Amino acid sequence: MGLLKKNPFGHYLFLKKWIIRIMGGMTHQRYRGFNDLQIEGSSILKNLPDRNVLFVSNHQTYFADVVAMYHVFNASLSGRDDSIKNVGYLWDPKLNIYYVAAAETMKKGFLPKILAYAGSISIDRTWRADGQNVNRQVKMSDISDIGRALDDGWVITFPQGTTKPWKPIRKGTAFIIKKYKPIVIPIVIDGFRRSFDKKGIRIKKRNILQSMVIKEPLDIDYDTEGVDSIIEKIEYAIEQHPSFLKVIPESEIEAHESLNEKRRYSADTNKDKDL
């Protein structure tokens, strides 16, 4: 790889590789140390084509979710099934991984700008800006940028456009699927909201059980299937359809939180014994 080789967005691949290596090394303990990331289904990744793959996922923090996916994707491609043990998999990372993010988020501060260079496709949200509800038209350049990224590699998107659960899927995701016909891989994550602050930078609690489930590709008829049908499939696949609220009783949620508290207490006790 030449030092001056760039991706379609003008980013130097040599620089991007070192950002992924450094940031990956700095964040590895967040998922395998301070907390425990359990992975399921990562073997699916090894059988995917090198380009035109769209990952759709629920969203819990600004940055921790996508950083974890960079770890899991590269670990799987280097032969580690459902594990991110030994961070050496980042020495030769996949450089054509991109993720869709709000432009205003990626412009706030030095760290977001560094993370943006690692693969952000920054878009202007049509429904939210600077903490206020807005209503503006989709920028066609944003759609084109996502298309360019799909043409070059893999794209991660959070189709709800927010870290709040149970929000509706944005129709733009379905339009992109119909237009570019990517393989669509659902991902379901959990535990990140309890582990980190909203931005996903500061560790809020330790010894939290995090999870990432990578599912089989969605079966989509790109030519005849309607937008609403695609949206419903995504909602079910990433477990954000309203019907899930009816089958997850409050007692189960409380029990899950209680388990995390026991895990934290047990870990603290073991540390005290080691001392």
Results as ranks from 00 to 15, higher is better:
Leu275His: 11
Arg193Trp: 01
Ser76Cys: 11
Phe34Tyr: 15
Thr27Tyr: 11
Pro217Gly: 05
Pro242Arg: 10
Ile146Asp: 01
Trp91Thr: 15
Ser83Asn: 13
Lys94Phe: 06
Pro217Val: 03
Arg125Ala: 14
Tyr265Gly: 02
Glu225Lys: 07
Pro168Ser: 08
Asp274Ser: 12
Pro112Leu: 08
Ala174Trp: 02
Ile185Phe: 02
Ser43Asn: 11
Val227Asn: 09
Arg136Ile: 14
Asn52Arg: 10
His11Ala: 14
Tyr265Ser: 14
Arg51Asn: 13
Lys271Met: 10
Tyr89Thr: 03
Pro217Glu: 01
Asp142Thr: 07
Gly226Trp: 03
Pro168Arg: 06
Leu275Phe: 13
Ile121Phe: 12
Ile177Leu: 09
Arg125Val: 12
Ile214Pro: 00
Ile44Gln: 13
Phe110Lys: 12
Glu40Thr: 14
Val155Phe: 06
Gln60Leu: 03
Leu259Cys: 03
Glu250Tyr: 07
Pro8Ile: 13
Pro168His: 07
Trp127Val: 09
Lys164Arg: 13
Asp65Thr: 01
Glu252Trp: 02
Thr163His: 00
Ile177His: 02
Gly79Thr: 11
Gln160Asp: 04
Val87Asp: 04
Glu261Gly: 00
Phe55Ile: 04
His59Thr: 01
Lys108Cys: 10
Glu254Leu: 05
Asp65Ala: 05
Val213Asp: 08
Leu15Arg: 08
Asn52Ala: 09
His71Trp: 02
Gly41Glu: 08
Gly172Lys: 00
Lys273Ser: 05
Lys85Met: 15
Glu225Asp: 11
Ile208Arg: 02
Gly131Thr: 03
Ala116Cys: 12
Val184Ala: 08
Ile231Tyr: 05
Glu252Ala: 09
Lys164Met: 12
Tyr99Trp: 12
Leu150Arg: 02
Ile189Thr: 04
Leu45Trp: 00
Gly131Asp: 06
Glu235Trp: 07
Leu90Arg: 01
Lys171Phe: 12
Lys5Ala: 09
Leu209His: 14
Ser195Gln: 03
Gly119Thr: 07
Ile39Trp: 01
Glu235His: 11
Lys262Asn: 03
Lys246Cys: 09
Ser83Ile: 08
Gly10Ser: 11
Val87Thr: 10
Gly200Gln: 02
Lys246Thr: 11
Gly131Glu: 06
Tyr31Gly: 04
Asn58Gly: 03
Val56Pro: 01
Gly2Pro: 14
Lys198Tyr: 02
Lys107Ile: 00
Ala149Ile: 07
Gly33Trp: 08
Ala102Thr: 03
Ala255Ile: 01
Tyr236Val: 13
Asp223Trp: 05
Asp152Lys: 10
Val188Glu: 08
Pro249Phe: 05
Gln132Gly: 03
Arg193Asn: 05
Glu252Val: 03
Tyr236Ile: 15
Thr162Lys: 01
Ile123Ser: 04
Thr269Asn: 07
Arg202Pro: 02
Ile156Gln: 01
Gly200Ala: 00
Arg194Pro: 00
Lys246Arg: 14
Ile121Trp: 06
Gln132Thr: 11
Leu77His: 05
Val66Met: 06
Pro242Leu: 11
Ala118Tyr: 03
Ala267Ile: 04
Arg30Leu: 12
Asn96Met: 06
Lys215His: 15
Asn74Lys: 04
Ile97Lys: 03
Asn52Ile: 06
Pro186Asp: 12
Lys204Asp: 06
Met212Ala: 15
Ile156Met: 15
Ser229Arg: 13
Gly25Ser: 07
Met212Asn: 05
Trp91Ala: 15
Tyr236Asp: 14
Lys108Met: 15
Tyr222Met: 09
Arg148His: 14
Ala118Asn: 08
